[in-house]
């Protein structure tokens, strides 16, 4: 069974022909060619596909595509404006918050959602809020520093 799905992606209206069984990740990657959310585990464990849905960080692989009808979805492509990186993205670069880069999109989305909710997080709050995003290269400390630095400069 196929449906026409309409929602707002990074500020622009989009439409896609989707199957009932498609996840939001399937639609973003395969139908709309938005490839920053990564298919790390496809089972909600790794966080590499994290996107913002109505301002909240969600796993695109566990989100049934049809449930985003009419809603706002933001991916990393939508974080920078006119090619200008956001302070959090700049901080990831300067602190070495990425090595292979495969987890980076999901990390940035989760961290953006965290800072929106809590502009001055403590270390333990960052560890708690970011615990659903795995990095196998081992950049956790650098990512934590990047988030703390962004929060400090946001004053």
């Amino acid at each position: 069974m196929t449906h026409i799905l309409s929602f707002t992606l990074n500020g622009a209206p989009v439409q896609a022909l989707v199957k009932t069984s498609d996840s939001l990740l399937d639609v973003l990657r395969e139908k709309l060619d938005v490839t920053s959310p990564k298919r790390g585990c496809d089972s909600g464990d790794c966080g590499a596909c994290t996107v913002m849905l109505e301002g909240k960080a969600v796993r695109a692989c566990l989100t049934c595509a049809l449930t985003v009808e009419g809603k706002q979805v933001v991916t990393v492509e939508g974080l920078s404006h006119n090619g200008k990186l956001q302070p959090l993205q700049e901080a990831f670069v300067s602190h070495g918050g990425s090595q292979c880069g495969f987890c980076t999109s999901g990390m940035l989305v989760s961290a953006t959602a965290l800072l929106a909710k809590n502009p001055h997080p403590q270390r333990h709050e960052i560890a708690q809020e970011m615990s659903g995003n795995l990095c196998r290269c081992g950049c956790y400390e650098e990512i934590t520093q990047a988030i703390l630095d962004t929060a400090r400069k946001g004053d």
Partner: peptide
């Protein structure tokens, strides 16, 4: 900075 970091953080 990593040579590909800009690309990584912008997807």
């Amino acid at each position: 900075p990593r040579y590909d970091a800009q690309g990584q953080v912008s997807g």
